[in-house]
């Protein structure tokens, strides 16, 4: 929504977290984690370019609102427990 010139600062100063950008909508492939095989190596978390993975007790939780589906987590997973599946597929 375009803001009136009266509502904006003098110059564009960005002060809001980028979590407003639903970059998960870009995704063509979705990471699916088989938690039962996870070795808690944390590599998926470490190499996620978007910081879209958080660790809960060492196990990844992928935030699909932001995951762009690059597949680095699946590529780097030491237990090979992440697979990329086409969006829309089960």
């Amino acid at each position: 929504m375009t803001k009136s010139y009266e509502e904006i600062p003098l110059t564009p100063i960005s002060d809001s977290p980028s979590t407003m950008n639903m970059t998960g909508l870009w995704r063509a492939f979705r990471p699916v984690v088989d938690i039962s095989r996870c070795k808690k190596c944390t590599l998926c978390w470490k190499f996620c370019p978007d910081g879209a993975i958080t660790l809960v007790d060492g196990v990844p939780v992928i935030d699909l609102k932001y995951c762009k589906g690059c597949g680095i987590c699946a590529q780097e997973c030491s237990a090979e427990c992440i697979v990329m599946v086409p969006e829309g597929a089960e």
Binding site: Y5, I8, L10
Partner: peptide, 13 residues
Amino acid sequence: FGSLVRPDQYMEF
């Protein structure tokens, strides 16, 4: 400071 704006906001600045 000085970030990217869309065409729908540039003119107001």
